[in-house]
Design a protein around this nucleic acid. Structure first.
Lengths: 154, 154
DNA sequence: CTTGAAAATGTGTATATACACATTTATCTA
DNA sequence: TAGATAAATGTGTATATACACATTTTCAAG
């Protein structure tokens, strides 16, 4: 692996040359920031931030029976998810399903949340289409595949 | 675009079928979380979190003359970077270069920071190698290319 | 030298993320 | 049924991120 040496004060520090260009954690986080900013810019005029919209979509899908299960599906830390859910709940978009008796907390949409989901879907589609157009079909597909792969890193 | 309808309480809500599998913001954030967790697990025993290590590497590289410039290079919000730098400064790894007279704050490594960088480089390399091995050379290259592309999304 | 624009940084507020530890509830076994 | 075990959630603490607005410094035009 190629490195380069640069003089730093009185000492020489060797930083791997590919640190900036190949550091997976640096690049994956930068990518997430860039995409988030873009979606936020497009969706913010209509209400929530994109992270909350995608969480709302996941709740709407209903493929979960507990917070723990939803956290597992989204590959997000459970306590993080709990707090994000509380925000949506405080704003009246979701609520816990009181019909169930067990310990698990199943979140479902309120009427207001349903209305918001309906409103946001076309804007979300527009954002997707815009980026797909910018990246080209090939680029888009390659990116989707790459993100699926690293999203599954254990 | 294909959608499916599911019954939600008394109403039917239509969520795009590809919402979960193709939402770029969901997937890019999930990928960043996964990679971050992995690097953190590998690097934490040696001190800092991976986000701070990569920031430290960027400071060490010295390709910046101000916080604003560094923020631009890293595609990170300036006020975010400011706070992250303060953390490293509080721990004695970096300091502001007092030799310059202008308004810009140029952060440089302290001796302690230099020692930490030297210590972390092999561990960072090991983390990179481990993931590359898991993903295979082809997968690795494809991911690198994809992340470069979306990281540049304006 | 004054003034006004531009550059750079600082701060308040809010959300997103994760780990460690504690608490509560459900379930199984003897 | 009592006690142990597992499942699910709650909470404290710390870091990461961004936006909006304010403040400070620099610098050029006049």
């Amino acid at each position: 692996m190629c490195i380069y040496t640069f003089i730093y004060g009185s000492m020489a520090v060797e930083i791997p040359e590919n640190m900036g260009s190949e550091c997976l954690v640096l690049k994956s986080r930068r990518a997430a920031r860039a995409v988030t900013r873009r979606y936020d810019k497009l969706l913010r005029p209509y209400g929530l931030q994109c992270t909350q919209v995608s969480l709302l979509f996941n709740v709407a899908s209903g493929h979960h029976r507990s917070v723990t299960e939803l956290a597992s599906q989204m590959a997000i830390e459970r306590s993080t998810l709990t707090r994000n859910l509380k925000l949506l709940q405080r704003r009246g978009y979701i609520e816990t399903d009181s019909s169930g008796q067990g310990r698990p907390q199943q979140y479902i949409l309120t009427e207001r949340g349903e209305a918001l989901v309906r409103e946001m879907i076309p804007h979300w589609r527009e954002a997707q289409a815009q980026l797909r157009n910018e990246l080209g079909d090939e680029g888009w597909d390659a990116i989707q595949a790459a993100l699926s792969t690293i999203g599954a890193v254990g």
